[in-house]
Design a protein around this nucleic acid. Sequence first.
DNA 1: CCAAAAGTGTTTCACGTACACCCATGC
DNA 2: GCATGGGTGTACGTGAAACACTTTTGG
Lengths: 229, 229
Amino acid sequence: MKHSYDYPRPALTVDCVIFGLDDSDLKVILIERGIDPFEGMWAIPGGFVSPGESIDDAAARELREETGLTNVYLEQLYTFGAPKRDPREHIVSVAYYALVNLTEHKLHATTDARSTAWFSINDIPKLAFDHNNIFEMALARLKGKLRYQPIGFELLPRKFTLTQLQKMHETILEKPMDKRNFRKKILSFGFLKDLNQIQKGVAHRAARLYSFDERAYRRMQKKGVHFEI
Amino acid sequence: MKHSYDYPRPALTVDCVIFGLDDSDLKVILIERGIDPFEGMWAIPGGFVSPGESIDDAAARELREETGLTNVYLEQLYTFGAPKRDPREHIVSVAYYALVNLTEHKLHATTDARSTAWFSINDIPKLAFDHNNIFEMALARLKGKLRYQPIGFELLPRKFTLTQLQKMHETILEKPMDKRNFRKKILSFGFLKDLNQIQKGVAHRAARLYSFDERAYRRMQKKGVHFEI
DNA sequence: CCAAAAGTGTTTCACGTACACCCATGC
DNA sequence: GCATGGGTGTACGTGAAACACTTTTGG
């Protein structure tokens, strides 16, 4: 069945850069393309937007299909609309990025024939389409936003230690931080809840566990307090 | 003539929030709609994207049609894709915002039948579609970015005084600043070029004129210096 | 000479940064 | 008892913020 319109339209897709933190290594999901164009190359997961489906929903659907996850952090990144970005025809793509926590969720093995894999962000191959651009922009956004928005917690387990939190910042921002200063600062914001629990099964002194207190964060926000690490 | 595709597609438009600074008053261009839906209401200028036209070009075209201007600051803002945002059908809109300098450019009187007007941002009526959302997001982006990116100069004449620069910041950020501290800080960055010229025809002591030195700014950027007002 | 805006330094306080040692636990 | 990471305080310097008067010019 054909679908007809009075004027021609570009096609519309969403692409979703899915970040995960795996024991202090930042990774993204890539998919090996099984069909032309760019058959055999790796690409960021994505798909077409259906009329009647919001683009946010389309991105969430894409994420669910790749990971089985719902309710994860998902944010629109940028829209890529150069006419030649897809060799077949003009396809405009709205890119999103997602932050998932690899340690708590067992991810689906992908069910269809395509092969899917996590790649360390330091080891990204040449990708199909303009997907290297999309990836670079997603990473830049993550780095930029991490410093003044509490999005990093999305990459960690719900209960985490201050050392895990610091390692995450160091990994993503690619610079070492001073342990005492980091703790002083992050605790001073008041949005970390001390759970009065400690790690179990570690071969050294067990660390205290914290969680992100969204309530407290919102209260801080409303007072107009500017948080920055 | 009809255009047919194997799968249905949402339509794609660009909308362009055009900001101008008029003697310390921040304004945007709105257009009165002549046709349904929302006939008679004000809206942000926009139009459909043709296949083969990049979305950036479509936004630039829209801007040119409304103002006659090219080569002005234009940045992609966000893509709005809720299926019900247009009552007719699913229309996805990529929003942009532009910064133009009202004092140097005489703007076209609009040539077609639609009426076009500058509205002060403190006096925006209820707009068609979800355009109030788009406007609010554009304003928030402008406010946020002004503090750490040299975009404010786009709103001023090429040669400006430090007082004009300060007033612009005060207007957009909606808070008063200390004259001495402002000057000390902005000059310390080193990206303002003292033109060794002074104002003419003012009924008081004439101020020195400066221009934004993009070269110097890029040099500063490359050294990794973080600028913030 | 008066009105109006330009231009200019110093003090104070908060916060960022640098830095080293003892503690608890499992093996 | 030893290896491993957890946890803590202080001194110093930089930069933000507060603050008022003199200068220049046109009318």
